[in-house]
């Protein structure tokens, strides 16, 4: 657009007629350029976000106030009935519990491992770029492939890789999808496997920014490596840790692919007793399998508010941390 206008706007300036008219035309084009082009630069983002991000989220609320069938359309205004029903739905609370449980089981070990790995990477390792890339490899593998492969490794048969490993140390086979704890563990392993290296690199970046003098003075004080790690390293990178917790929270609350694939056929049910059905699986089930858009939209909104709440809590935490420092 800008190019065309600028090219055509000057009404056939005669080159021979001296600089004046050309300059004026140019100036006008320049003014347009200065005033309008910045908006043209930023507008695509706002259009895309508005149309495909904000509008659907707001519209979700409208849908949630109706009986609404995905295919047959709106079937009548019901006010907050969908929400009332949701808050009396044991499936919702179970999904909430499952989501939080898997989130906790996957996030905390993951971040602890990541800290440890970052600490090891933050040394004079030989071939350091090899190590750094190697820990990132799982993150490149698609979640679907992770889900497919790990679901086979955690298959409920005696001959699956996981049960074979258990048998090596003399333990019996586990029917992984059958129980709450074992299914949550299996799903968490997928999450941990995929994200630990990524978080380790983020911590590594933060650790490298820690002034070395802090370490030196700690060493002079005769602190062991262990104490140095906890008293110097971790406090210095606290904001980064909070950042990773925030990111993991947002991702964790929307966990979908891993449990879906772990569930196999009719994976949206999250196991025979919904023992690993997460909130997003529930959302998917109601939206696209049962085609109950109204109810699904209510789930969306609750999930949305939950994430917002978590974000605010995290934000407050960050504030407190920065003010105490």
């Amino acid at each position: 657009m800008a190019v065309q206008t600028a090219e055509k706007a000057p009404p056939a300036p005669k080159r021979s007629a001296g600089g004046a008219p050309e300059k004026r035309g140019r100036k006008r084009a320049f003014g347009f350029d200065r005033k309008v082009t910045p908006y043209l630069f930023v507008i695509p983002f706002f259009v895309v976000f508005g149309v495909f991000g904000l509008y659907p989220i707001l519209y979700t609320f409208w849908v949630s106030l109706h009986d609404w069938h995905l295919v047959n359309g709106e079937l009548g205004f019901v006010g907050l009935d969908n929400f009332t029903e949701l808050f009396h739905d044991p499936d919702f609370y179970r999904a909430l519990r499952n989501t939080l449980s898997i989130f906790v089981i996957s996030t905390f070990p993951q971040l602890l491992f990541a800290l440890g790995i970052a600490w090891m990477l933050d040394t004079k390792l030989r071939a350091r770029s090899f190590w750094r890339s190697a820990v990132l490899v799982p993150n490149v593998v698609s979640i679907v492939a992770v889900g497919v492969v790990f679901s086979q490794m955690f298959a409920p048969s005696d001959w699956s890789v996981s049960n074979w490993l258990l048998s090596l140390v003399g333990l019996g086979a586990v029917d992984w999808p059958a129980n709450v704890w074992s299914s949550h563990l299996a799903i968490s392993v997928m999450v941990i496997w995929r994200w630990t290296g990524y978080n380790a690199l983020i911590y590594l970046a933060a650790m490298q920014a820690v002034p070395r003098e802090l370490y030196e003075s700690a060493e002079l004080d005769g602190a062991s490596r262990w104490t140095t790690f906890w008293s110097v390293t971790v406090p210095s990178i606290r904001p980064t840790i909070v950042f990773t917790v925030v990111i993991s929270t947002i991702g964790g609350l929307q966990l979908f692919t891993e449990p879906l694939l772990f569930g196999g056929v009719n994976g949206q049910e999250g196991g025979s007793d919904h023992q690993f059905q997460t909130l997003t699986l529930l959302l998917y089930k109601y939206a696209f399998v049962q085609q109950n858009s109204g109810y699904a939209s209510a789930i969306s909104w609750v999930l949305f508010l939950l994430i917002a709440l978590m974000a605010v809590v995290n934000l407050l935490l960050v504030r407190r941390i920065s003010s105490t420092r």
């Binding site: 029917d175 059958a178 009719n266 049910e269 196991g271 025979s272 007793d273 049962q290």
Partner: peptide, 19 residues
Amino acid sequence: GDIRPGFSNALIRVEQGKQ
């Protein structure tokens, strides 16, 4: 077709010894 998966799951629960 909409209710069959629920009965399949119910039978799986029995085999898994959950119920």
